[in-house]
Amino acid sequence: MNALTAATGPSSAVFARSVREGLRDPGPALFLPALPPLLLVIAMTSLFGRLNGVIAFPTGSFKEFFVPGAIMIVAIAGGGFTSAQVAEDLRSGFIDRLRLQVRGPLILLLGRFGFEAIRIIPGVAAVLCVGLLFGGALPNGLPGALVITLLAMLLSAAYAGLFYIAAIVTEDPQTPLNLNPVGIIVSFLSTAFIPRAAMPSWADTAAGLNPVTVIVDGARAAMIGDLTSATVAAALAVATAGVAISVVASGAVLNRKLSRG
């Protein structure tokens, strides 16, 4: 029990610190990630309903196709909110002080990853509700909603790793925020907006290589397809692997940084 407390204590402390920081500034932490996809859902479902006649959407309509994609965009928009605090913690020596309590520096980041996963839940709920109002569908009901929320949480944590690495390398709170345009490219070049069959070949190739495509396809299946399908399982596996890669990579970068003093 003591060993468990020793291992989880610092992570819990960092998680609690992230929650406090998020609640102190709830706009960028909790609501801002939802704003772009929320507006996109309203504008695009209102505007592109007639695309059904010219693109064969596997879901039957653009609206049903796009809403799960928009929910996944919540995980990407405003990505890496806590990375600025990671850079600040490195600068201020807070991480150095925590190091005295733990063996591996990775534990210091776990609390941040945890907060990145949960902070998007209000945004996911908002986009889901508005998406349903604007023509989305949720025949899988609450189980479908829970799986899509879980996928978004995993994607948010996985994507945060990119921002943490930038924050650790530069120790500059501003630098990771300059990575935000990456999210536009990653979202567009996935199946969040239209199916791969309707893309030009270069975009289709990019979408095929983009792990977000697998996650978005899984979210769509969870919402309106077969909840027990291989597509959903693949999405959960890719998202979980993404989190693992992010955690290990950013932990390794932090370890190197701290060992160099």
Partner: peptide, 20 residues
């Protein structure tokens, strides 16, 4: 750069709008 990227990718994805 972001303007060019958004314009290029968006027209590539939604080019079918011209068929409406």
């Amino acid at each position: 750069i972001p303007s060019l990227l958004i314009g290029t990718i968006f027209t590539a994805l939604f080019g079918a709008v011209e068929e409406i």
